[in-house]
Structure formats: structure tokens, C-alpha cells
């Protein structure tokens, strides 16, 4: 039996470097703050420069180290540069958390080429670009953990999310491919958040007529009867980033208050 050292549950990522896309707000920011508390240095990648800098300021406020990078993950050179800059600055990349995504609605016949292309590029191709760039460094280093954000919509279909659902489902299989191909050194897993109360969620809500009734219906369908918090998702990301999940790879972890179990 392998006897590993007893894990230090307060410092689960000591000495590690985590690159988190979309960490200028919401779930990505919550993960950055939590992983940094556990000893990781964080690359805060976001298309929104102000958001990225704000997250780094928050990291520094808690005595942690972060590097803000303006990254458009839908552009391959931008992903390559993100990984290259991470290596230049920190010399290693232990965790790649692909959290950035766009959420566009539209049923199949209403989905324009532009919506389709942007969604597939941002929510699927981007993850391929980032993983392809990062995996060689993980293999040359101490291995790594890749965390890709799908959605309960990547597990089952929902009206009006044609491109989004397809991209997220593709992302699940891409992640499992990576798990199988690079198994001994690189773990790759999927987080599938349910309805999470983030600024983006609120923005969609504010534009929805009758939002209060809608929220009530939505919450009534969630077995735990509440929306998720960014911190709920961050805690699961921390688990997957750390050695606590050392034998978990190719797995899908819904963080959804039990919603997926009803489908």
C-alpha cells in the first residue's frame, strides 16, 4: 500500500502554480482566491483587463501572488501566450482551470453562424488550445491537474442552448481523451456547475422579464432549494486541483445541488 504523507488540508496547493481563465470575476475569481489561500500562485487570465487586475489586487490583499493577463481564449495565439507567460514568470504550471466561457442562447434554426462559431471557439476550441500548450510543461514538470468547466447543460439538453450544449458536451469528451492519453502524469476532470449566482447570472436575470417568478421556479426544481455560490464551485475546483483527488481523472463532478440527479 502506498503511504503518502497525510495531507495538510489548510495548504492543499503549496508551491503550485494555477492558471485560471475567466478569473476576473465570478467563479474564476472565487477559485483564484481559494486556491491562493491554499498556497498556490495564480495566473489570472481574463478578456476583461479591469476584472483581472481587480482579482490580483484581492489576491495581494490576502498576501498571495497573482499575475493578471489579458487573454481572449477564443484566439489560439492568446492561449499559447498565456501558457508561455506563465512559464516565464513562474517556471511551472501545475493547474490549468479552463473556466472562461460565453453563454449564448438560440435554438438550432435561430443560431447564426457567428453565434455558433464564437460559442464553439470560446467554449471548446479554446480549451483544446490551452491544454495543448500546457500539457507538455506538465509532463516535463511534476504532472498536473486540468479542470474544465462544463455545465449541467453539457450533460443533458435544454431548450434554446444549441451551440452552448454542443460545445459543453464536446468539452466533456475532450477532457476524457486527455485523461486517457496522459493518465500517469496529468489528471483531467470536468466540473459541471448548475445554476450559480454570479454577476453574469444576475446580468442575464436583470434582462429577463418576470425574473423573480422565474428564479422561484428554478430554485424549486433544485433539490437543495437554493442557487449555488461561486464559492461552492471553487471548493470543488480546489479538491480537483489538489492531491486529494489523486486517483480521480476523466470524471464529471456536478456542483448543482442535486439537479443532474433528477434527469
Amino acid at each position: 500500500m502506498t503511504t503518502a504523507a497525510y495531507p495538510d488540508f489548510e495548504r492543499l496547493l503549496d508551491g503550485r502554480v494555477a492558471c485560471i481563465t475567466g478569473s476576473g470575476s465570478g467563479q474564476g475569481r472565487a477559485a483564484a482566491l481559494l486556491m491562493a489561500q491554499h498556497g498556490a500562485r495564480i495566473v489570472v487570465a481574463d478578456v476583461n483587463a479591469a476584472g483581472a487586475h481587480e482579482t490580483v489586487r484581492m489576491l495581494e490583499e490576502q498576501g498571495a501572488e497573482g499575475l493578471a493577463l489579458v487573454v481572449d481564449v477564443s484566439e489560439r495565439p492568446s492561449c499559447d501566450e498565456m501558457v508561455a507567460t506563465t512559464m516565464e514568470r513562474f517556471g511551472r504550471i501545475d493547474v490549468l482551470y479552463n473556466n472562461a466561457a460565453v453563454q449564448m442562447s438560440g435554438a438550432v434554426v435561430d443560431c447564426t453562424d457567428e453565434q455558433w462559431d464564437l460559442t464553439i471557439r470560446t467554449n471548446l476550441s479554446a480549451i483544446f488550445y490551452a491544454c495543448r500548450a500546457a500539457i507538455p510543461h506538465m509532463l516535463a514538470g511534476d504532472g498536473g491537474s486540468i479542470i474544465n468547466t462544463a455545465s449541467t447543460l453539457g450533460l443533458s439538453a435544454s431548450e434554446g442552448f444549441a451551440a452552448y450544449g454542443a460545445a459543453k458536451a464536446g468539452l466533456v469528451k475532450l477532457t476524457q481523451q486527455i485523461a486517457v492519453e496522459y493518465g500517469p502524469a496529468v489528471r483531467a476532470n470536468v466540473i459541471a456547475p448548475g445554476s450559480i449566482d454570479t454577476p453574469r447570472f444576475r446580468k442575464v436575470l436583470d434582462a429577463t422579464p418576470g425574473a423573480d417568478a422565474w428564479i422561484e421556479r428554478l430554485t424549486g426544481n433544485i433539490p437543495v432549494r437554493r442557487l449555488g455560490l461561486a464559492e461552492d464551485v471553487a471548493a470543488t475546483a480546489l479538491f480537483l486541483a489538489s492531491d486529494l483527488s489523486g486517483y480521480i481523472s476523466g470524471a464529471i463532478l456536478p456542483v448543482d445541488g442535486g439537479l443532474a440527479a433528477t434527469r
Binding site: V180, G183, V224, G228, G250, P254, V255, L259, A260
Partner: peptide, 18 residues
Amino acid sequence: MSTYVSGTVIALDGGLAA
């Protein structure tokens, strides 16, 4: 750590089921 995680199956299998 897992207060919003319920009704799930976590495969702990090194990637085998994938």
C-alpha cells in the same frame, strides 16, 4: 467543501471509466 454537491457519482478510477 462539497455543500452544493449531491446526487453525484464520483468515479475514483485513474480515468478508467472515461
